[in-house]
Computed example of a mutant assay.
Amino acid sequence: MTTLDERQLVALVQANLPYDTRLFQQLITPYLPTLKGYCAKLLNNQSDAEDVVQETIIKILTHLKNFKWAVSFKAWLFKIAHNECINKIRDRRWDTLENNDEYLENIIGAESTHQDLATALSALMVNLSFSDRNIMLLRYRTELEFQEIADICNLKISAVKMRHKRVVEFLKGQLRE
């Protein structure tokens, strides 16, 4: 059996919805771990993240027929998740912290896993503004390109790159202290 690329799979899913969701499940499954992690870190609340992931999947399923390739499917998926996270933040206050922080090492270029470093970075990330934390999570946790992040956040690419640079410098400075 041949493996379908993302474009072929999206086209098949669009053609078979709403009657056959097996292909939709095949399309969405590879993104679920990253999507769950992104939402959990952005919201700092596992329960809220699970709600947002469910809402995101429902929205994707509902609107996939109208999806056009202006952006990648992955960027479109995370744009929907981003908007759902904002809606969740508007609805509730949150204050718990998820402990899955291996992506944080990429932010400052750490070469090995170090629990104290991950803990320190996690604590610093919580104190970043929503926008800055979102940019960092989209860049390092979901591995999106700066242009895709700019599209998701409705910012210019130069603004995303500058905020990213400032946050990295801030984090490095805080870790030296």
Rank of each mutant, 00 (worst) to 15 (best):
A40C: 08
L97P: 04
N44I: 15
L43C: 07
A120Y: 02
I108D: 01
N154E: 15
L61M: 12
F24P: 01
I57P: 01
K41H: 15
D91A: 13
L9M: 09
I135W: 01
A75P: 04
V52Q: 02
K79N: 10
I58Q: 13
R163H: 06
S112Q: 14
R176K: 15
M162E: 13
K65I: 07
T62D: 14
A81W: 06
T34Q: 14
M1E: 10
H164P: 00
E6K: 06
I86P: 03
A123Q: 14
D20Y: 09
K165T: 05
R176D: 10
K161T: 04
I80D: 04
A118I: 13
D20N: 13
Y38G: 04
M1F: 10
V52G: 01
H114V: 12
V160Q: 02
Y38A: 08
Y103W: 15
E105W: 12
W76N: 03
Q54M: 09
V168F: 00
I89Q: 13
L117R: 08
E50L: 14
E6M: 08
L64A: 09
F170W: 08
L137V: 12
W76T: 02
E102P: 00
E6T: 13
D5F: 04
T34E: 15
L35A: 09
K41D: 14
E177C: 12
P18M: 08
K172P: 02
V160G: 01
A120Q: 13
W76Y: 13
Q174D: 11
A150P: 02
D95V: 11
I107C: 01
A15V: 11
A159R: 03
F146N: 06
G109V: 11
N99V: 11
L155W: 07
D48V: 12
S72L: 01
S129I: 09
E169R: 03
D132F: 05
R22Y: 07
I60P: 05
A15I: 10
N127L: 12
I80E: 03
A40E: 08
I108K: 00
H63P: 05
D20T: 07
T96S: 12
L175E: 05
K88A: 10
N127Q: 15
D95Y: 12
N99P: 00
R93C: 10
N16S: 14
K74I: 04
Q8A: 11
K68V: 14
A70K: 00
K156F: 01
I86S: 01
N99E: 13
G173V: 06
N134Y: 00
L104W: 00
E55C: 11
L27N: 01
L121M: 14
N154Q: 14
K68M: 11
L128N: 06
L4R: 03
A120D: 11
